[in-house]
């Protein structure tokens, strides 16, 4: 009756079909994040696991609610909210109260993604939007660190984890004292360096046995996961290369000028969230430029701003703001670096 069974079927290109689609890409990214999460749980214990689960659930739930409110079909299946939730947790201190993690998840998805139009339209990396909100809203809780490898991490939660919603988290001093980690003062290697000029062993930084956010400590593991993503062709290798390269060169310049004040480039590379940011955050496909030259510029801006904030700014770490700034510059960079269309004349300056 209808024309469904017509003889000739016309199709537009592309004619080749592979299984690559949004959810399969996202699923591979999830595979690459999971080892980092597992290492974070191993280092920081049940509290870290609880926080990862909370932010993830919060992101998924917000995504569902937002889709329902907008009258759109659910986009839970594309796994992007899952990635946002996991990445958000990786940037948070392990003992952060779960309710704050949940707030961060809601902000990430609702403010960072849904308001811009959902997946593919977000200007900024959603997880970092959530992180930035939490940093501004709860400056004390988000800089309360617990030591890595505390002996009681699998027998008890950090006391601040289960704070009542809207209430002040309990003090973690007793818990840290019970951990009996020598010389731990509740500071990350970066803030130790910045405010007390105490260095940290580069080997510890590389392997990740230091205090810090759940997923930022092990440079080695993040690098391995990054190489997996590059091998799978799911990540533009230029971005981490540009970010880390610029950070290395900038910090080397500072270090050569005054080694007494400024930390070594190796310290710069392996401490704080630089590795995590360069590999998992800056490479967000939506928030980064599309042209090869643009990608180099974008990465260089992030690397430079990170080092400048760390060495000259008031904050110990500036990766988050550097990447958000890079995201904000992306449309401009893309416009500047548009390649000339074949046959088009060079633009004449009037």
């Amino acid at each position: 009756m209808t024309a469904h069974g017509s003889i000739l079927e016309l199709q537009v290109s592309p004619h080749l079909h592979t299984k690559v689609n949004v959810s399969s890409i996202m699923l591979h990214v999830v595979y690459s994040i999971v080892p980092v999460c597992l290492f974070g749980v191993y280092q920081f214990g049940w509290s870290a696991l609880a926080l990862i689960v909370t932010t993830t659930l919060s992101c998924l739930l917000t995504e569902r609610v937002v889709c329902w409110a907008a009258g759109k079909p659910s986009t839970l299946g594309d796994c992007s909210a899952l990635i946002t939730g996991l990445l958000l947790a990786l940037t948070l201190p392990p003992g952060l109260p779960l309710w704050m993690g949940a707030v961060g998840g809601v902000v990430s998805i609702a403010l960072g993604k849904a308001l811009f139009g959902g997946i593919g339209f977000n200007l900024f990396n959603p997880a970092l939007v959530g992180r930035a909100f939490l940093q501004a809203a709860f400056p004390v809780a988000i800089t309360t660190w617990t030591p890595a490898g505390a002996p009681q991490r699998f027998t008890s939660f950090v006391p601040s984890t289960f704070a009542w919603p809207f209430s002040r988290p309990a003090s973690v001093d007793a818990w840290i004292a019970a951990a009996g980690v020598d010389g731990f003062t509740g500071a990350t290697p970066l803030s130790l360096q910045k405010f007390s000029h105490i260095g940290t062993d580069i080997g510890d930084l590389f392997l990740g046995t230091t205090a810090g956010s759940i997923g930022e400590t092990s440079a080695l593991l993040i690098l391995v996961c990054g190489i997996f993503l590059i091998w799978q062709g799911l990540m533009d290798w230029r971005i981490p290369t540009a970010v880390l390269g610029t950070a290395f060169i900038t910090s080397l310049a500072f270090y050569v000028l005054n080694p007494g004040i400024y930390p070594s480039p190796a310290f710069m590379m392996f401490s704080g969230g630089l590795m995590l940011g360069a590999i998992f955050m800056a490479t967000d496909m939506v928030g980064s430029p599309v042209t090869p030259l643009g990608v180099w510029i974008y990465g260089a801006v992030i690397g430079l701003v990170t080092v400048v904030i760390r060495l000259k700014g008031g904050l110990p770490d500036g990766v988050m703001y550097a990447i958000l700034l890079g995201n904000a510059l992306t449309p401009l960079i893309d416009q500047w670096t548009q390649p000339r269309i074949f046959g088009q004349r060079k633009k004449q300056h009037v």
């Binding site: 909100f133 501004a136 809207f166």
Partner: peptide, 16 residues
């Protein structure tokens, strides 16, 4: 309103 245990959201007082 919320008593001494309330954790204030500093961002709300700030321009953002």
């Amino acid at each position: 309103v919320f008593g001494p245990q309330f954790e204030p959201w500093a961002i709300m007082i700030l321009p953002p």
